[in-house]
Structures are given as C-alpha cells and as structure tokens.
Amino acid sequence: MEISRHWRLAKQRYALVGEVCPNCEHKIFPPRDICPDCGEEAQDLYQFSGRGEVYSYTQVQQAPTGFEEYAPYTVALIKLEEGPMLTAQLTDMGKRPVSIGMPVEMVTRKLRSDGERGMLIYGYKFRPAIAS
C-alpha cells in the first residue's frame, strides 16, 4: 500500500502542476522547492501548458510489475515548451510511428491499479497533439 505517496503526488501527476522561481522565473518540474538554476527558494505553484515535443523514446516490451497489461508501450523524454524535460508514457498513438520532435500534449490517464482491490492511479501521459 502506497496510498499516501500517490496522494501526495496527485497535483503534479494529474495536471502537471510544478513551480516557478520568483527570482529568475525558471519553470520547475517536478516541484523541488529550490530553483535548480539560481539556487533560490522556489515554492510558487505553476500550471504547465502540457504542450511539448518528443526528445527521445524507447519501446517497453518487458513491463515492470503493475504495467504488464499495457505492454508493449512507448516511454518518451518529453521536452515541455516551458523548458523542463520529463519522462512519460505515450498514449493514443493508434498506428502512428513515434518520431523525435513530434508535437505532443498532456492527457491525464490511468497509470495502473494497485491490484484488484487497491486504488486506481492516474497521472500524465502524452499523445500526438490534436489539431486546434
């Protein structure tokens, strides 16, 4: 049971809420309360747009425990338009191949469930950006 951990991460996982440095305006994700750029204290919440592009990717065939039912799936490094880089699953690829530089957008999806009786865990994934 890791309920408290999932609960603590809900804001950043559901909606890409990170932080912005009040000193140098550096955008921070995941939130870490200290600006990695200038070292100042940074605890102001910042809502990321969710837009970004694929920086690199790999296909997962042998999924770790809890993710078996989703394999094969693609995990990508996503460069957010505000700057930070994060790791996330790609989803809704349909029959499209992944490519570096592909524009993507954040969606909140089911990441996994904690067994048959446990909680459902939701969080960000990225999909090919919809036109408008």
Binding site: Q89, T91, V107, T108, R109, K110, L120
Partner: peptide
C-alpha cells in the same frame, strides 16, 4: 476507450 481510459480520464478531458 483505450486501455488507460475510463470515466474519470474521459471526464477530465
């Protein structure tokens, strides 16, 4: 719906 979609995720979008 895809494998990772349910009423919660679809309602959010």
């Amino acid at each position: 719906a895809g494998l990772d979609e349910d009423v919660i995720t679809m309602s959010i979008e």
